[in-house]
Protein backbone atom coordinates (compact mmCIF):
# COMPACT_ATOMS: atom_id res chain seq x y z
CA UNK A 1 0.00 0.00 0.00
CA UNK A 2 1.30 3.45 -0.93
CA UNK A 3 -0.06 6.69 0.48
CA UNK A 4 -0.13 10.30 -0.54
CA UNK A 5 -1.34 12.70 2.15
CA UNK A 6 -2.26 16.33 1.51
CA UNK A 7 -3.77 19.11 3.58
CA UNK A 8 -5.90 21.47 1.54
CA UNK A 9 -6.84 24.95 2.72
CA UNK A 10 -10.18 26.71 2.48
CA UNK A 11 -9.45 28.04 -0.97
CA UNK A 12 -8.41 24.68 -2.38
CA UNK A 13 -4.78 25.63 -1.87
CA UNK A 14 -2.30 22.97 -0.73
CA UNK A 15 -0.81 23.50 2.74
CA UNK A 16 1.10 20.30 3.32
CA UNK A 17 2.14 17.23 1.34
CA UNK A 18 3.66 13.92 2.34
CA UNK A 19 4.17 10.67 0.49
CA UNK A 20 4.81 7.42 2.29
CA UNK A 21 4.29 3.68 2.20
CA UNK A 22 2.85 1.19 4.62
CA UNK A 23 4.78 0.11 7.69
CA UNK A 24 2.38 -2.74 8.45
CA UNK A 25 2.98 -6.32 7.26
CA UNK A 26 6.71 -5.74 7.11
CA UNK A 27 6.48 -2.71 4.84
CA UNK A 28 9.45 -0.36 4.83
CA UNK A 29 7.47 2.88 4.79
CA UNK A 30 8.50 3.82 1.27
CA UNK A 31 5.86 4.82 -1.26
CA UNK A 32 5.79 2.62 -4.35
CA UNK A 33 3.73 4.51 -6.85
CA UNK A 34 4.45 3.48 -10.43
CA UNK A 35 6.78 6.12 -11.83
CA UNK A 36 4.47 7.04 -14.73
CA UNK A 37 1.50 7.51 -12.38
CA UNK A 38 3.13 9.27 -9.48
CA UNK A 39 2.56 12.80 -10.73
CA UNK A 40 -1.14 11.97 -11.09
CA UNK A 41 -1.62 11.86 -7.31
CA UNK A 42 -2.01 15.60 -7.00
CA UNK A 43 -4.56 15.65 -9.81
CA UNK A 44 -6.59 12.81 -8.32
CA UNK A 45 -6.65 14.44 -4.91
CA UNK A 46 -7.52 17.79 -6.41
CA UNK A 47 -10.27 16.18 -8.46
CA UNK A 48 -11.87 14.71 -5.35
CA UNK A 49 -12.37 18.18 -3.84
CA UNK A 50 -15.65 18.56 -5.75
CA UNK A 51 -16.98 15.46 -4.05
CA UNK A 52 -15.78 16.71 -0.67
CA UNK A 53 -17.90 19.82 -1.15
CA UNK A 54 -20.95 17.71 -1.79
CA UNK A 55 -20.40 15.31 1.08
CA UNK A 56 -19.42 17.89 3.70
CA UNK A 57 -22.94 19.31 3.98
CA UNK A 58 -24.66 15.96 4.22
CA UNK A 59 -22.69 14.68 7.18
CA UNK A 60 -21.51 16.64 10.18
CA UNK A 61 -18.81 14.26 11.31
CA UNK A 62 -15.23 15.15 10.55
CA UNK A 63 -14.25 11.78 9.16
CA UNK A 64 -15.96 11.49 5.78
CA UNK A 65 -14.42 8.06 5.01
CA UNK A 66 -13.54 6.98 1.51
CA UNK A 67 -15.15 9.54 -0.80
CA UNK A 68 -13.61 9.00 -4.19
CA UNK A 69 -11.93 6.40 -6.34
CA UNK A 70 -9.94 6.64 -9.51
CA UNK A 71 -8.98 3.23 -10.89
CA UNK A 72 -6.79 1.74 -8.18
CA UNK A 73 -6.54 4.93 -6.12
CA UNK A 74 -8.85 5.57 -3.18
CA UNK A 75 -9.26 8.95 -1.51
CA UNK A 76 -10.29 9.31 2.14
CA UNK A 77 -11.17 12.65 3.66
CA UNK A 78 -11.21 14.33 7.04
CA UNK A 79 -12.80 17.75 7.29
CA UNK A 80 -11.74 20.00 10.15
CA UNK A 81 -14.02 22.53 11.82
CA UNK A 82 -12.22 25.33 10.01
CA UNK A 83 -12.99 23.88 6.57
CA UNK A 84 -9.49 22.54 6.02
CA UNK A 85 -9.41 19.17 4.29
CA UNK A 86 -7.09 16.29 5.03
CA UNK A 87 -6.99 14.03 2.00
CA UNK A 88 -5.30 10.66 1.96
CA UNK A 89 -4.86 8.86 -1.31
CA UNK A 90 -4.22 5.17 -0.79
CA UNK A 91 -3.28 2.81 -3.56
CA UNK A 92 -2.87 -0.91 -2.94
CA UNK A 93 0.27 -2.22 -4.64
CA UNK A 94 -0.31 -3.54 -8.12
CA UNK A 95 -1.59 -7.14 -8.13
CA UNK A 96 1.04 -8.11 -10.71
CA UNK A 97 3.84 -7.37 -8.28
CA UNK A 98 2.66 -9.62 -5.48
CA UNK A 99 1.13 -13.02 -4.88
CA UNK A 100 -2.48 -13.75 -3.97
CA UNK A 101 -1.81 -14.03 -0.23
CA UNK A 102 -2.66 -10.44 0.55
CA UNK A 103 -6.38 -10.38 -0.22
CA UNK A 104 -7.49 -9.15 3.21
CA UNK A 105 -5.17 -6.16 3.47
CA UNK A 106 -5.68 -5.17 -0.12
CA UNK A 107 -9.30 -4.17 0.34
CA UNK A 108 -9.11 -0.38 0.84
CA UNK A 109 -12.73 0.02 1.93
CA UNK A 110 -12.75 -2.66 4.62
CA UNK A 111 -13.69 -1.55 8.17
CA UNK A 112 -10.15 -2.27 9.39
CA UNK A 113 -8.61 0.07 6.83
CA UNK A 114 -11.26 2.69 7.55
CA UNK A 115 -10.52 2.51 11.27
CA UNK A 116 -6.76 2.71 10.76
CA UNK A 117 -7.15 5.78 8.55
CA UNK A 118 -9.47 7.33 11.11
CA UNK A 119 -6.86 6.90 13.83
CA UNK A 120 -4.24 8.40 11.54
CA UNK A 121 -6.45 11.41 10.78
CA UNK A 122 -7.35 11.89 14.46
CA UNK A 123 -3.71 12.08 15.40
CA UNK A 124 -2.89 14.45 12.56
CA UNK A 125 -5.89 16.61 13.54
CA UNK A 126 -4.62 16.95 17.09
CA UNK A 127 -1.25 18.09 15.82
CA UNK A 128 -2.85 20.31 13.22
CA UNK A 129 -4.72 22.21 15.94
CA UNK A 130 -1.46 22.67 17.81
CA UNK A 131 0.14 23.96 14.62
CA UNK A 132 -2.59 26.50 13.87
CA UNK A 133 -2.75 27.66 17.51
CA UNK A 134 0.48 29.55 16.87
CA UNK A 135 -0.28 33.27 16.97
CA UNK A 136 1.92 33.65 13.90
CA UNK A 137 -0.14 31.23 11.87
CA UNK A 138 -2.74 32.82 9.62
CA UNK A 139 -5.47 30.97 7.83
CA UNK A 140 -4.40 29.21 4.61
CA UNK A 141 -0.72 29.47 5.44
CA UNK A 142 1.51 26.58 4.48
CA UNK A 143 2.37 24.32 7.44
CA UNK A 144 6.16 24.54 7.57
CA UNK A 145 6.86 23.36 11.10
CA UNK A 146 9.39 20.49 11.00
CA UNK A 147 7.94 19.13 14.22
CA UNK A 148 4.49 18.96 12.65
CA UNK A 149 5.99 16.99 9.77
CA UNK A 150 7.75 14.64 12.20
CA UNK A 151 4.45 14.05 13.94
CA UNK A 152 2.64 13.24 10.70
CA UNK A 153 5.43 10.83 9.74
CA UNK A 154 5.15 9.16 13.14
CA UNK A 155 1.37 8.85 12.83
CA UNK A 156 1.76 7.32 9.38
CA UNK A 157 4.21 4.77 10.73
CA UNK A 158 2.04 3.97 13.69
CA UNK A 159 -1.29 3.37 12.00
CA UNK A 160 -0.84 2.77 8.28
Amino acid sequence: MSYYFAIIGTQDNPLFEYEFGTSKQGGDGVARFPEQARHMNQFIVHGSLDIVEEVQWANGSMYLKCIDRFYNNFVSCWMTGGNVKFLLLHAPSQPAATTTTRTSIANPTSPQTEEAIKQFFTEVYENWIKAIMSPFYHVNMEARSPIFRQRVVAAGKKYL
Binding site: M62, G81, G82, I132, M133
Partner: peptide, 19 residues
Protein backbone atom coordinates in the same frame (compact mmCIF):
# COMPACT_ATOMS: atom_id res chain seq x y z
CA UNK B 1 -11.03 30.83 13.63
CA UNK B 2 -8.67 28.96 15.93
CA UNK B 3 -11.10 28.50 18.80
CA UNK B 4 -13.57 26.82 16.47
CA UNK B 5 -11.21 23.93 15.83
CA UNK B 6 -9.89 23.77 19.38
CA UNK B 7 -13.34 23.70 20.99
CA UNK B 8 -14.67 21.15 18.49
CA UNK B 9 -11.73 18.96 19.39
CA UNK B 10 -12.52 19.28 23.09
CA UNK B 11 -16.16 18.27 22.62
CA UNK B 12 -16.94 14.68 23.61
CA UNK B 13 -16.40 12.37 20.59
CA UNK B 14 -20.11 11.75 19.98
CA UNK B 15 -20.98 15.43 19.63
CA UNK B 16 -17.80 16.24 17.74
CA UNK B 17 -19.76 17.46 14.74
CA UNK B 18 -19.10 20.33 12.41
CA UNK B 19 -22.01 22.79 12.54
Amino acid sequence: LKLLDLLLYREPPRSQLRP
